[in-house]
């Protein structure tokens, strides 16, 4: 399961998450969503530190964050 889950249909391609990610794993993809925006995408889930910066700046509430815990 993903650590960074981006709801591509909510994303408006503003790029704020890309600009604040400290480990530089977010990019603007070259796909188009239904509204014609190119949604943000995570390039390396394993590198996510769960710092929440992307979710904090996202104006479209498009990002959910998860972290594995030992059961």
């Amino acid at each position: 399961m993903e650590r960074v889950s981006i709801d591509e249909q909510q994303c408006k391609s503003c790029g704020l998450c890309v600009s604040v990610c400290p480990v530089k794993i977010l990019i603007i993809s070259d796909r188009l969503n239904a509204r014609g925006f190119r949604p943000a995408q995570c390039t390396d889930q394993d590198k996510c530190t769960s710092c929440s910066s992307c979710a904090l700046v996202c104006p479209d509430i498009a990002i959910a964050l998860y972290r594995e815990v030992k059961a």
Partner: peptide, 30 residues
């Protein structure tokens, strides 16, 4: 070793889960 996913951040319940009319990057959404 079994693993579960802990929620770090998810959408609030009070949020109606619609795409807003705000321009891209506008902090109204925040």
């Amino acid at each position: 070793m079994a693993e579960e996913m802990k929620v770090i951040y998810e959408r609030p319940r009070s949020w109606a889960n619609k795409v807003t009319h705000y321009c891209p990057g506008c902090t109204h959404g925040v």
